[in-house]
Amino acid sequence: MVPADIFIAEILTILVLFTGFDIWKMPYGKEILIALLVLANFFVFPRLFYPEYKEGEPQCGLPAMAVGILFWVAANLVVTFTVIFYWGMKWVMRKVG
């Protein structure tokens, strides 16, 4: 599994669940989903990609920090742009239809 797999899964999750929340008219469903994904990007997903050190090998924290920053910045940008894309497409569909 690579970080791109998680990014794609986040995009699909947002698009499918946002559509479902619109159909089921769930109050605060979108906000809760966004909050959960942002928290997961900060605390859960980076830990899946931390390097495993062998015994006797020097343990540098730089790779772990790079993974953390990747998820803090890139994954949260993916979430933000996907939400903006969804709301933009919803706005366009209302104007057209």
Rank of each mutant, 00 (worst) to 15 (best):
M1H: 03
V2T: 08
V2N: 01
P3N: 06
P3G: 05
D5V: 04
D5H: 08
D5N: 14
I6R: 04
I6K: 07
I8Y: 09
A9G: 15
A9L: 09
A9N: 10
E10G: 10
E10F: 08
I11C: 01
L12M: 09
L12A: 11
L12S: 12
L12H: 07
T13Q: 14
T13K: 10
I14M: 09
V16D: 15
V16G: 03
L17E: 14
L17P: 10
F18A: 10
T19S: 15
G20N: 12
F21S: 04
D22E: 13
D22Q: 07
I23C: 03
M26E: 12
M26D: 05
M26N: 00
P27M: 08
Y28F: 15
Y28W: 10
G29A: 01
G29S: 01
G29R: 06
K30A: 06
E31I: 00
E31Y: 00
E31C: 00
E31G: 06
I32E: 03
I32C: 00
L33F: 03
A35H: 02
L37D: 06
V38C: 03
V38G: 04
L39D: 08
A40C: 15
A40S: 15
N41Q: 03
N41S: 14
F45Y: 15
R47L: 10
L48A: 05
L48P: 03
F49N: 03
F49Y: 06
Y50M: 04
P51T: 05
P51Y: 11
E52K: 13
E52R: 06
Y53G: 01
Y53W: 14
Y53P: 02
K54I: 02
K54N: 07
K54E: 13
E55K: 14
E55W: 07
E55I: 15
E55C: 01
E57I: 07
P58K: 12
Q59A: 13
P63R: 01
P63C: 05
A64E: 15
A64C: 12
A66V: 12
G68L: 08
G68T: 10
L70K: 02
F71D: 05
V73W: 03
V73D: 00
A75S: 15
L77N: 04
L77D: 09
L77W: 06
V79D: 07
V79Q: 10
T80E: 02
T80C: 13
F81N: 00
F81I: 05
V83Y: 07
V83G: 03
V83P: 02
I84G: 01
I84E: 04
Y86K: 01
W87T: 10
G88S: 08
G88E: 01
M89L: 13
K90F: 04
K90N: 09
V92E: 00
V92H: 10
V92R: 13
R94G: 00
R94A: 15
G97M: 08
G97P: 03
G97L: 09
G97C: 07
G97R: 11
